[in-house]
Amino acid sequence: MHEFSYYAPRSLSEAIGLLATHGAKARPLCGGTDLIIQMRAGALRPTSIIDVKQIRELRRISFDGTTGLYLGAAVPCVEVYENAAVLGRYPGLADAARLIGSVQIRHRASLGGNLVNGSPAADSVPALIALGATALVAGPEDERTVPVEGFVVAPGRTVLRSGELLVGLQVPPPPPAKSSSAYLRFTPRNEMDIAVVGVGVALVMDGERCLKAQIALGAVGPTQIIAQEAAAYLTGRRLDQAALDHAGWLASRAATPIDDARGTAEFRRHIVSVLTRRALLAAADRARVN
């Protein structure tokens, strides 16, 4: 691996200062489960590594009824899917956090890192998008919020400007009563795999009728895709087999997959419709018992 300097700031302002000083040559480090691999492969060569795991704002996870869930960017997956508020109110996010890597990876990897890494196959991103999450970004000048669906602009590229740091994620409170979420992915192996397709959905239900749906797709385009038409179609409908099939079909039309080592475009498109159906059913089942 190439040489670099290591910093472990204890405050947000210190971290921002370091990022400002080192500019584009700096890279924040959370769990390192993507960053260290990429550095070892020579794909990334930052000369300064800013370990942000000791900053309170990045390690905090909290929920309140008005603002919803706050998730520090460096909180490891295990603390996400073991969190009672996440399990109870954002099961789709728990699904995704529980699927990433292995136990070993989930003890280090964070959802902030998953987002900043900018992979189209990132498991947590469709789940976050379906839940309407926003990213809180701090820079030398100011702070800003960016909707998660607009955060990644191309594979490996995000809206973060030089010197900016992803501090946390804010997920709005779920609507009262009959709402829920789910994330499903398809992988050839049962665990320890990268999504060939990932589908995150969030539903608000009134009995068997869908009041509102959001569907986000992963690994079927250069960035995550919102299946707008499918979601719109479901609004006001009963989630019967025909509606689920049609929503799946609409979602598969929204996908723009490619052939790669992990799957063919044709296969991925088909799987989008399958997983959309299954994820909608899973979320609807959860909403029923909510």
């Binding site: 050839p188 192996r189 049962n190 665990e191 320890m192 795999d193 990268i194 790669d260 080592a261 992990r262």
Partner: peptide, 16 residues
């Protein structure tokens, strides 16, 4: 070779 690693060269894991 596009899958020269143990994530993408998919040998069976314990749950498989």
């Amino acid at each position: 070779m596009l899958n020269a690693g143990l994530l993408d060269y998919r040998m069976p894991t314990c749950p498989d």
